[in-house]
Design a protein around this nucleic acid. Structure first.
Lengths: 353, 353
DNA sequence: CGATTCTGTGTTACCGCTAACAGTCGAGGG
DNA sequence: CCCTCGACTGTTAGCGGTAACACAGAATCG
């Protein structure tokens, strides 16, 4: 293993200078910096994280509190967080907080705080949990929220542009020729739900359609809620030719309902989701959806937190930071142009879920 | 933060003695050890992992290679591994290896080896991948396999008793009164699949039934394969009154097929799974299943690996070790006694998936 | 133009822990 | 009774970095 000392010798400078180049690089002459970087490159040096955190008394443990998201989401999120944590040389301490009860949530946080966690990452839905945020604030623990719609003043947040993504997806359906598009909303406590719904409405308006008349049902991001909402949409007098569900789980549920009622997807009806979790490709037909860069968001969250921690230690007040990552449309097999005869097949039964 | 020095002072010994007590504790007088432990307890001391690995030049990175398991399985596995890794003060380096191609797999391993990974954990299905095991062997990297049926000589392995678990589940169905039980096998490359199937057969024999006549279909652990297998089972002349799928994904798929065909679960047909992943509770009805302690298995794997690494460093040859963790039957709502009239409802359609 | 402030760099002293070695002390052997 | 040996404990010297300070030489200022 090459050490900082090796690099220093190779570049003809002291170890300290190398350290400066690596870390922030203020007060280093440009020519020196280049020489050091070249040496680092040549020797393929990477700093020893153990030594670094020991010497700097640096953050070594950051917390990740999760609750009950879809397993696919969590797995991807963990992978991203883990990757970033390793690069930064910090340990990830993860804990679950399934309870909805404010007191219990506070209890979990307090336990968390007594452990050596120096900052916390909150993926959804916890990023919107007021009791948790309040408790962390009280304990003075820095937080990065993920996918939260209305960032707190002074807070760190990572998200995608849900509004724009929902607009894109809606435009895509409109471009295919759909005019009667059903929408399944996400959990009302999550701000992103509203953003997605607004995006849907705005795209309709843009196309000269009235969002008020569009068939919309409330969902809660669960597969079960998608079943109910899907049933309702398909029980309407005029069946929509497309359904835009606020996440993949509800889209998959809608596909299941449509199949049960004898619709062919996408011939009779297009169904699209949001998130691009593993579920999207494990149902048939595979879902057209919006890809959230979940792992990248987790990485961004870890990096943001570590930067903030460092800034705090350096005495600088932390400042409001938000990172908006880019999403992508993933066109698969669950979407197509509406049937020529824009009237769908007759509905077989009308049982409600 | 309390340091080893604080503990040493409190116990009236040197730091080194404290270190000895913590690490292996040879050559420490019993009374001394007790005093030290008492001081550790009183001061609530926990060693600084960064300092420890820096000083000892110890293992700091262990690898985790995964491929394409169910997201629910992976999430739980990661959580367990992460927890153990943190306690041990090592970093988890995770990497995916989706390719089935032997050369590509070897390539991933080689890349892995050049990074600073000192040992590797292989959850299924990679734990059964010969090319990967061979490559790791060649590179002299210690491995812990998880849920592998036939452990290598000289290898480290963590698993549950699949055979016993499958027997228990089958006995449970028999006790409910089922006599015509369908079985969906797991991926033939995975030894655990065979163990589960053998368990099923042995329980039937025990009850005086002939396994040869039982309706059995091949599955591959995926939801999709479960759909196909389920269709086949329900297309038989005599429909089984119960289906035992080799994992939850295939059980969930079977439930979906049964519903599509107008069966009520569990009134008309019982369907049970294996693993107790999140999927088991996110479908309706919730699945009766066998709980694999996935997180605990991951923890055990990490601990086993670290112990082995330490033993190797100390010069002792590593010895064969296997850990068999205990499973549990989880009775939920997808199983019940067979219908009184043991003939199921008429089948609506017979489309194959 | 001397005093003061920057810049850019090197020196020193640890961070908390453990390997390696160096005692100390009592037991047992010659 | 001296010597060796083993069990136990302490001392020393880092592991690979970084903070804090020191110190040159250049830039700024009254």
């Amino acid at each position: 293993m090459t050490t900082i000392e090796d690099v220093a010798r190779a570049a003809g400078v002291s170890a300290m200078t190398v350290s400066r180049v690596i870390n922030q690089g203020k007060n280093v002459r440009e020519s020196t910096r280049e020489a050091v970087l070249e040496a680092i490159e040549r020797l393929n040096y990477s700093p020893n994280t153990a030594a670094r955190s020991l010497a700097a008394g640096q953050a070594t443990h950051i917390g990740l509190l999760y609750a009950n998201p879809s397993a696919a989401y969590l797995a991807q999120f963990l992978i991203g967080a883990l990757h970033a944590a390793r690069s930064a040389g910090v340990h990830l301490v993860i804990e679950s907080c399934e309870s909805e009860d404010a007191d219990e949530q506070a209890e979990v946080i307090r336990r968390f705080a007594t452990s050596e966690v120096e900052g916390v990452i909150l993926p959804p839905p916890l990023s919107e949990s007021a009791p948790i945020l309040v408790e962390l604030e009280a304990l003075q623990i820095p937080v990065v929220t993920v996918a939260m719609g209305t960032p707190r003043e002074d807070g760190l947040n990572v998200r995608i542009d849900d509004h724009a993504a929902a607009m894109e997806m809606t435009r895509y359906l409109l471009d295919l020729g759909h005019r009667n598009i059903g929408f399944i909303k996400g959990h009302p406590n999550i701000i992103a739900s509203h953003d997605r719904y607004r995006g849907f409405c705005d795209a309709l308006k843009e196309a000269g359609l009235d969002p008020e008349t569009a068939p919309v049902e409330q969902g809660y991001f669960t597969y079960r809620s998608g079943l109910t909402a899907g049933e309702r949409l398909l029980s309407r007098r005029t069946t929509p030719t497309a359904i835009f569900a606020s996440n993949d789980d509800m889209a998959a549920a809608s596909v299941s309902v449509a199949h049960r009622r004898g619709f062919d997807v996408p011939r009779d009806i297009s169904i699209v989701g949001f998130d691009d979790t593993a579920l999207a490709t494990s149902v048939w037909p595979e879902l057209t959806t919006v890809k959230q860069p979940i792992a990248a968001m987790a990485e961004a969250a870890v990096e943001l937190l570590i930067t903030d921690l460092r800034r705090r230690r350096a005495g600088a007040g932390h400042k409001f930071t938000e990172r908006v990552l880019s999403h992508a449309m993933i066109i698969r097999e669950s979407s197509a142009a509406p049937p020529a005869a824009s009237r769908p097949k007759k509905v077989k039964a009308s049982q409600s879920a």
